[in-house]
Structure formats: structure tokens, C-alpha cells
Design a protein around this nucleic acid. Sequence first.
DNA 1: GTCTATAAGACGATAGAC
DNA 2: GTCTATCGTCTTATAGAC
Lengths: 212, 212
Amino acid sequence: MTTSKADTLKINRRDMMENIRNAAITEFSQHGFNGTSTQAIAQRAGLKKSQLHYYIVDKESLYADVLSIVFRYWANLITFDTESMNPVQVLTQYIRQKLEFSFTHPELSRIFTTELLSGAQRLEAFWPDAVINTRRKVDLINSWVAEGLLRKLDGRLLLMHIWAMTQYYADYAVQAELVLEASLLDPQTRESIFEELVDFILLGCGLSPSKE
Amino acid sequence: MTTSKADTLKINRRDMMENIRNAAITEFSQHGFNGTSTQAIAQRAGLKKSQLHYYIVDKESLYADVLSIVFRYWANLITFDTESMNPVQVLTQYIRQKLEFSFTHPELSRIFTTELLSGAQRLEAFWPDAVINTRRKVDLINSWVAEGLLRKLDGRLLLMHIWAMTQYYADYAVQAELVLEASLLDPQTRESIFEELVDFILLGCGLSPSKE
DNA sequence: GTCTATAAGACGATAGAC
DNA sequence: GTCTATCGTCTTATAGAC
């Protein structure tokens, strides 16, 4: 056992930081930046407010941390599969990734939404990359249209409508569960939403969903 | 001129209340209930915080006022046209109403979203009516499916996906304008979104959009 | 009827004790 | 390195002046 006291503390501190970040994600996703108190974050993390302020620089930088986590997930998990040049496969896979993210990380999705609702000022640093990634996807969709693989449509609108419907299951989870009288945690519910979403979108693009 | 002093004051007060409500709508829609200070509302209404508290009972009831406005609009403006039994006409008209509301009252749309994001506790009073209205629409859609007018789909999912895409243009207006490089105030932009949305949804339902 | 002065407490943040 | 005591500000709300 050569674990020094410093090492132990370091590990504990890292766990504590993750603990705090998770508490922050929950609070910020519900109440936004303005609406969240460091008090509430501290309480959720099992700390006193004054203790919390030892671990974080300030509320603003904790929020920036959390925002960057959202975008890191987004960039790593949700991409167009460029291997496949088949619109049906690319779109189906993209819809699954986006929807799965809403199901498994609804709080991260909601942080993006609260930030956008409150003016998106703290999001400006992330826009340039997002714009590039978006343009790449839009160009691919539009090239499909040019090749006649999709009906004549605006790739930007298609992409936004996919975002809208997948994001819905995070932001409006309360409403969805009320309407469906089912939990979004239930794998069967998730699967039937996914299947309907794929059919709906592919048909809307003038594609025929493959039935295997 | 028989206008008494009392009448004049009454009129002014009503104007002031509307002024305050509008300021409240703007602030609440951006920052939610927790995130909005009466200070910010007062300032936007051109009052001092202490003046504002003369006109309102408290923050909570001002918020309740604003929420009820949202639902009054919703109930009056956004309905299924039961006169027409034609799915294409009913859906097209519904999409136009919903989308138009997002364009012309984005702040009211956003208040609903912030409230849902923060747990929707203050919305509970409005759910029963909303559930009834929703069920009626779902039943109609499902009857179309039973008659073979629409492809086999779950009416609840279709309705939610229409909500998601139309609501998007209020909640995510910042993102939409960035992606489209256009203003959502522009009638041409609005019209092209509407047309694409109708084509997309009708095709997704297995209907063929009429082209006149 | 309208507005000011001010209370009572929550807010984010820090200096300094341990 | 960790936590407590505390500061100054901002919060909602009201009592009382005009």
C-alpha cells in the first residue's frame, strides 16, 4: 500500500468534483443559470453552500464546465456515419443516436434548451464548431436531393425537424409520458418511438423505410 | 366630458397591468420562474421594484396570470377544424395555426417550455383540460388510421411530433435563424418553413400533399 | 390611489480559522 | 487541504408616507 495521503485526497477530490458537476447538471437543467442557486447545487451534492465554494471557482465557471460537457457529448456521440453513403442508413443511425441521447441524458439536452431560451449568450463560444458540423450534414443531405435520392427539400429544414422531434423526448419528457401513459425509461416505449420516428422521417423525405 | 377621475385611473391601471404582464412574459419566458426577479420585470415595465409590488399581489400570482394567458391562447387559437373531415385539410390547418403561434407569440410558447423544464408543477391545474383536448385529437387521427386514410401509425406520436416541430420555431428560434441565415420575422422564410413542414408531415403520414 | 423607505432573508463569494 | 463564519449585495415583500 503505497497510496500517499495526497493521492487519496486527489481521488476524493475528483469524485467530489464529479459529484458537484452532476448536482449542477440537474439544477441548471431545471432552472437555467439565473434560476439556479449555488445553495441548491450544494444541497444536492450533500454540501453546505460555503463548502461548495471551496471546490468551485464560481457559479459562472461551473456552468461553463457543464456546457462544455454537453458539447463534448454532442460532438462525440452524435455524428453522421460517413462510411455509409446510403441515406436510409445514415438518417436511421443519426435518429437513433439523437433519440438515445435524449433518453439517456435528458438533463444534458435540457441544459442546452434552457441556455437557448435565455438568449444563448453563453453558447456563443460553441457556435463556430456547431455551424461547421451542421453545414457538413446539410451539404450531404442536399447532395442526396441533387442526386434524386430524396424528394426536393431544404436540408437545413430536414435537419432542424429531426433535432426538434428527437430533442422533444428530453425537453418535453413530462408531457410525452403524460400523453403516452408510459415511462420513457421503458425500453419498449423507447423502441416504438424510435421505429415510428424513422418511418415518419424517411417517408417524409420520400424514402421507403426498409422493413427488416 | 363626463370622465371622472376614478374612470381615468381605472383605465390607466388596466394599461399598467397589461404593461406589467407583457414585461413579465418576456422575463419569465427567458429565465423561468426561479430565474426571473421582480426587479427585472419592474425595470422592463418602467417601474421601480417597489412600485411594481403595489400593482401585483406577489411574484407567484403574476406568474399564474401569465400561465393562464398561454393556455387561453392555446385553447382558443389552436384547434382541430372539426367542420372538415378531410385529414389533409385538418392537419394542414392545424400545422399552420401551431406554427403561426410560434412565430407571432414565441415568448408565450417559451413560457410553457421553461415551466415544463423546471418540472411543470405549476402546470398541474391545466393538465386535465389539456388531456381531454389531446385525447379528442388523438381519437380523430386514430379513426383516420382505422379507415385507412393514413398509414398505420400511433396518433399520439404523430400529434407530439407536430408539436415538437412547430414549437421548435419558438423555443429554438435563435438556432433556426443561425442555421437558416434568415430572420423568422420574414414572411417568405415563414412561408417556406410552413410549406416544407406540411409536405414533410403529410408524406410522413402516407398522405400526398395537394399542390394547389 | 400611488409610491417611498425599509424590513427580513437569500444570494454569491471570501477571509481566515483549523 | 478543508471548512466555518461572515461580508456586501440582491431578493421578495410590506408598512406607512404622501
